[in-house]
Amino acid sequence: MNNDKKLSNIIDALAHHQDQGSLEVLERVGTNCPDDEVRRLTAKALVNKNTRDSLSIVIISRGKGINDLSTNVAMSAINELLALEDKSSAMEILAIAEESHEDESVRETARSVKALMAFS
């Protein structure tokens, strides 16, 4: 089994874990990893968790999820948000980010993604 497959399985296991500690590991280790592919997989896992806490990391945190400096990671996170069956939590968090986030770029991104999700 190669390294990528192992990482993918670990992130998948953390995403399916019900323990709150899994979220902390994904945020601390996964979203701060220098490797784009690990960050992309982590953002995907956090979106698929579809909880307020996990979506907050992906939507509100600067430089993570949809605000990642890597276009590949950001676009992957946006695609996962658009593919969610239940978008209610994501729309709430996007609305909060659009209205009250201190960073202009985060507000702009949240506004754009919210508009996309409204049309999808």
Binding site: L7, L14, D19, G30, D35
Partner: peptide
Amino acid sequence: IPDLDAMFQDQI
């Protein structure tokens, strides 16, 4: 979770 944390860091 601690096991997964350690394994995650090792593989990274």
